[in-house]
Design a protein around this nucleic acid. Structure first.
Lengths: 203, 203, 203, 203
DNA sequence: GATGAATGAGCGTTCATTCAT
DNA sequence: AATGAATGAACGCTCATTCAT
């Protein structure tokens, strides 16, 4: 049985969270390269040296932020998914879960969308999020077998659909249009059309 | 009658090109912030000081790279577009033009996809490429009027479709799958379904 | 009641002093423009980066050095001045105070004599030392009213007398002659003759 | 017998003069360290490389400017001096010659007043102007023998008197007062009092 | 002889990281 | 365990000097 966490351990966990949160926000706002460690410390309300008690280096902090972000996104999507849904509804839950997550955690989404994670990500981080990808791919394979989704490598379909979502969010952030519920719903329809097996192919 | 370019002018133009090329590649590989000017100089095979004879600052170089990239992309897409095409074929040309350009100029596409351009772009650069966006929006409006494309703000549709393309390219670059002609063709079909007016809405 | 200064605060104050001292000496030896910041750091026995923890920029350091120098000179002159002195003795105290200060702090005097302070001084620094000038001008006005000093704008007389002092110090520094007590005394007599109301004008 | 100067030699002499003039003005305005060679070239209307055909280095140019400036000042003072003048009038000619030269050639005077010539002057330049100093010292010795000038090392008196002049010019340049003819005349009286043998010492 | 494009050493400054307190 | 003062390598950029034209 797990030993109860001591007060100290709790305080340390909270401090670790504060650092991760500060880093996530700043990396999302100003990029990884553009964020000095002392600024992370200030936002997290800890001393600069303290950062290095929790993370071995800026790179290690970047990796931890990345993995946390991936995990948070996975949780958000998985939670919205009761088992046994029809493909269209399964997709709808994923899409709306993504939208809800984006509204609630814009920094996380913005951070994950960013390029140049490769510069500092290690192999383990790169693998992170793979299981979400895999579970979505499984869903797609099932839906393809059921004739609900167009044929082709599921990875390609995921890339297209997720890319469409990211494009929507990015342009909305640029102020080109508002990301309100109606827009999210319109986009859901459109992206489902991208995924769905074309009617003319159906028997 | 235009004076013939002197040897010096030719060499200077070539040097300017070499610098822009080197900067584009490095910015695409390592991001703007992550690329030291001396590295640009080395890749362009010029002295560090020489960079500053052609571009007033790193920021100015970044803006020039961005504008060149936008212009190159516009040229690639516009060239593939004879007038008077049917919507499906018009879209097909754009999509395949984009794919061809991506294969031929991966650094340019990767660079343009990147975030955090805002940190160094000036107003003129920000406006660059707007006309391409506008002409695609015009195409979509026409196609919507003709009943070929689903209703809704064209900017949202562009964001979704272009996002899908970017997602495809990005994941292909991550090695998840190959971006061969078949994949491009499959994706073209899928994204056209995203854009097209759903059959069930048609009279 | 003032809190006692901690060890750290004392060390920091000492470090700040060391930087100001090193900068003063180097600026006096080689001019502001001619002194690289790493050289200041080396002379002050701190790392280059440490300079920027105490002064925001080279310009800020230059201003601080200037203001300290002006203040030190003012202190040296004011201290030598009990109130109620006769004009001749008042001048003598100023002159000998200046001489003593020059011998004790040659770098400070040499630095203040330098040109091209304007290039980096801010408005506040420019104003520094004005009160010393003003108090000497007041003394001269009083002495003129008492018939002890020749008529004319006090600023001109100050410029001449202080210029004479500076000329003396500069040529002595060039090795043309020694600035011993006898020379200072001879010069005091001569410069008083410059200031004093000519005997033939006296009733 | 000297060969007549060829057209080329004349053009070169003119170019040399233009460079020296440009350098003098810029060094006076912005200091030696603060003046880039390309700026000298631009002001002299020659190519940057051309500077190095006339002067081996920036340092060599600085030395040449300095020597020219010293020589110009010597010429201005010597020309105002017919032989056989009484001490008071001899001094008056020197003083007014200095004032006239300052008005006509402010850049030269400002340049010569500047500190930190030592950083680049060679031995020969340092010696330049010594003969003027020597001739003034001779005048003073004669005037001392005649009982017109106060006793003491002539070098000290020169340092005081010249320093007073420089102080006057410097403060006038700072805008503290105008350097008009009346001010110059007042200062002449005052500085003569500095030099003159005090009346009470006279038999 | 004259040029100015090219160079790289060296500038002022920042920031990831260390370590004495 | 926590801190933040201290550091120096590395940044963007300048400029004295060279050399192909």
């Amino acid at each position: 049985m797990a030993r109860a966490a001591s007060t100290l351990e709790l305080r340390q966990a909270a401090k670790r969270e504060a650092i991760l949160r500060a880093a996530l926000e700043l990396f999302a706002e100003r990029s990884f390269d553009g964020t000095p460690m002392p600024l992370v410390a200030e936002r997290a309300r800890v001393g600069t040296g303290t950062l290095y008690r929790y993370f071995a280096s800026k790179e290690a902090l970047g990796n931890a932020v990345y993995r946390e972000a991936k995990a948070a996104m996975r949780r958000a999507l998985v939670e919205s998914l009761p088992p046994g849904l029809a493909p269209r509804e399964h997709f709808g839950r994923l899409w709306r879960g993504l939208a809800r997550f984006t509204v609630g955690e814009p920094a996380t989404v913005r951070f994950l969308e960013m390029q140049h994670h490769e510069d500092y990500l290690d192999a383990e981080s790169r693998a992170a999020g793979g299981e979400l990808m895999e579970s979505v791919a499984d869903f797609l394979r099932g839906a393809q077998a059921a004739g609900a989704v167009r044929p082709g490598p599921p990875e390609e379909l995921i890339a297209l659909a997720l890319g469409a979502f990211v494009g929507l969010v990015k342009e909305a952030a640029n102020g080109r249009f508002a990301l309100d519920e109606a827009a999210v719903a319109r986009a859901e329809e459109a992206v489902w059309a991208l995924l769905a097996r074309p009617p003319e192919d159906r028997p």
